[in-house]
């Protein structure tokens, strides 16, 4: 999931009796699947949680451009380079759709971005891993965008209108990302040298577990998750989504002729799902806290982009001001 841990401020769910008339009215609308729009009354906790969730989601899209940006100048052919640039441009777009949805809740874009740069706002742990070879571009598209799709498809039905509409747009564009990633890997496995095939397996070995971590910790019992579910800003538990992802991904993995770095991964005839091994949660929390392989580098790159681009923004404002004055003088 792009937003892996979202604090709701809830210790437990309020009963209908404990709610104010406004809260009850709001909850009934949500229960009836009526979309909440920016001008509707909403509980402060709902508004704050959504700002947190949507901003985490937006930051993930934006930081997510960085591991791929490393490969634009190193793409093996012009075709691959164009595809990669189109994908990265989409991610910038997805970040912007989401920031604009977030702003409808009264949040300020610059303030939220500043929180990211100060390390106060989270983004998906997955983007703190390095992309070491070209096959990583394939594995990122296939596994990381694949995991994002599983999460985002259910979020299309989220209760907040602007968020839901942003998700619908994003999902339409996202399947291109996953397919182009899978195709990179397929081509390498079908036509590649032994060395290139080994690169594919190496990329999968490194990204498999971090991709599973994208869905976040076990949360069936957590009050945050229960609150988010009641508000319908989360529609399925982290474990349910992770299982969906594994079930649809393993056959694709086998088709590639590759393996997952998980000795416990096997089909369970009884449950009709794949069993899999336990995730290294210590690693997950370490990365989330800022101690992953690339956390510092990612934030530094983001800050540089803002700082070094300052003159462009200033020039744009100066130009707009000049044009305005000219128009007034004429």
């Amino acid at each position: 999931m792009y937003a892996q841990l979202v604090e709701t401020g809830a210790k437990r769910l309020k009963t209908k009796e404990e709610m104010s008339p406004e809260e009850r009215d709001f909850q009934e609308k949500v229960d009836a699947e009526t979309k909440i729009e920016p001008k509707n009354w909403m509980p402060e906790g709902y508004r704050k949680t959504l700002i947190r969730q949507i901003s985490q989601h937006a930051h993930s899209e934006v930081v997510g451009m960085l591991p791929e940006g490393n490969w634009v100048t190193r793409a093996p052919t012009l075709k691959r380079k164009l595809q990669l640039m189109a994908k990265i441009q989409d991610e910038a777009g997805h970040g912007l759709y989401l920031y604009s949805a977030m702003e409808t809740l009264g949040a300020d874009r610059d303030e939220e971005i500043e929180k990211l740069h100060q390390g106060k706002a989270k983004y998906s742990s997955i983007f703190n891993y390095p992309t070491l070879n070209w096959a990583d571009m394939g594995a990122v598209g296939w596994l990381v965008d694949g995991a994002a799709i599983v999460n985002q498809v259910v979020l299309q039905r989220t209760s907040y209108g602007p968020y839901s509409r942003a998700m619908i747009r994003i999902c339409k564009e996202e399947s291109f990302h996953q397919r182009q990633g899978y195709q990179i890997l397929l081509d390498m496995m079908r036509e590649g040298t032994e060395e290139q095939k080994a690169m594919v397996q190496d990329a999968i070995n490194r990204l498999w577990w971090p991709a599973l971590m994208m869905f976040g910790p076990h949360d069936d019992e957590s009050p945050n998750s229960q609150q988010s579910m009641a508000w319908k800003i989360k529609r399925k538990s982290n474990d349910e989504l992770r299982q969906m992802f594994i079930d649809q991904t393993v056959p694709q993995l086998e088709f590639l002729g590759c393996t997952a770095p998980d000795p416990d991964l096997k089909w369970n005839e009884e449950t009709g799902h794949y069993d899999f091994g336990e995730i290294n949660w210590q690693e997950f929390y370490d990365v989330l806290k800022g101690n992953g392989p690339c956390n510092r580098e990612r934030i530094k790159t983001r800050k540089n982009a803002i700082d070094e681009g300052a003159w462009v923004r200033e020039a744009a404002v100066a130009y707009a001001e000049k044009q305005k004055q000219r128009a007034q003088a004429a």
Binding site: A86, Q89, D90, G93, L96, Y97, S100, E103, R109, R165, A166, E173, R313, A316, V317, Y319, A320, Q323, K324
Partner: peptide
């Protein structure tokens, strides 16, 4: 379809084109 930030209307038009009509 959504919103964009821009220094002036001309830039808003360019940003809107890039953001909302890529396909």
């Amino acid at each position: 379809v959504g919103s964009v930030h821009a220094a002036d209307a001309e830039m808003a038009m360019e940003n809107a084109r890039d953001l909302y009509t890529r396909r």
